[in-house]
């Protein structure tokens, strides 16, 4: 366990590699984006449209949590960039599991976001119109979403290997899929034509949509936790098998 904690610590230090200017710029943009989104939702709700019973407070809480927990709701291990840069090969030279190293490195990279963005978001939530309450089911759902997020990331890593390191193309494919189908940006509850009901059952829908819907009271744990458990149980064996199969074809070069 000690070696994984050391990996996390290294990853945390590395996340500040680009210096203070990059950190300030990145988090300033995140705040600007969050504030603009909260304003847009306020304006939309002020119109008085049919929101299927979703209140403004729920929407603001949903948006705030989605931004605050974004790296946990859309897990990105360094696998894609490390495959492209060639760093991936060095993971096989260490006496640690490759999955474990990627997971520890990812968890370490969350540190700065949690400290500089998540914490202030949670502290300022009442001022921004959101209402947060401790919800154990929401926490459990988040843990399942993180687990499934790792699994989805390994599936995409395998795809990058199979596509001979075309990581940029796979990234744009992934961005397009996650923007709409995870529920991170727009809650399924406000999508028209019953689209949200379908997406809720999809594997990507369990990533952000499920924990956020449970945390904001838009859905019940009884409805969403079994779906999350099911996708975790189905996708993990597939991800492990797929990655093992793909790693034999791994080719890395400098980026």
């Amino acid at each position: 366990m000690k070696k994984y904690i050391a990996t996390m610590r290294m990853s945390l230090k590395e996340s500040g590699y680009f210096g203070a200017m990059n950190v300030v710029g990145t988090y300033l943009m995140k705040w600007l984006r969050l504030l603009a989104l909260l304003m847009i939702w306020k304006v939309l709700f002020a119109v008085g449209a049919d929101t299927q019973g979703m209140t403004l407070e729920q929407m603001l809480t949903y948006t705030l949590l989605s931004a605050a927990l974004s790296p946990l709701l859309d897990v990105r291990t360094p696998a894609s960039s490390w495959l492209h840069e060639g760093t991936m090969l060095s993971l096989y030279q260490r006496p640690m599991s490759v999955f474990g190293q990627l997971a520890a490195s990812t968890a370490g990279s969350w540190g700065m976001h949690l400290l500089l963005f998540t914490l202030p978001c949670l502290l300022l939530a009442p001022l921004l119109g959101a209402r947060l309450a401790v919800n154990p089911w929401g926490v459990l759902s988040l843990a399942l979403a993180v687990s499934q997020g790792f699994c989805v990331d390994f599936l995409f890593a395998g795809l990058i290997i199979r596509a001979n390191n075309m990581s940029w193309m796979v990234e744009s494919l992934r961005r397009a899929l996650t923007a709409l189908f995870t529920g991170a940006l727009i809650p399924f509850a406000v999508l028209p034509f019953g689209i949200g009901k379908v997406l809720e059952w999809m594997p990507l829908g369990s990533l952000a949509g499920a924990p956020l819907a449970i945390a904001t009271g838009l859905s019940t744990p009884q409805a969403l936790l079994p779906v999350q458990l099911l996708w975790n149980a189905l996708l993990w064996p597939v991800a492990v098998w797929w990655f093992r199969r793909c790693q034999e074809r791994m080719v890395s070069y400098g980026g």
């Binding site: 939309l44 449209a49 193309m169 494919l173 923007a179 727009i186």
Partner: peptide, 20 residues
């Protein structure tokens, strides 16, 4: 990938506009 990017960049906000 291009087709999907196009779809996703338009669909989210458009669906909101339809709903609201």
């Amino acid at each position: 990938s291009d087709l999907l990017s196009n779809l996703s960049s338009v669909l989210g906000v458009f669906l909101l506009a339809v709903r609201f």
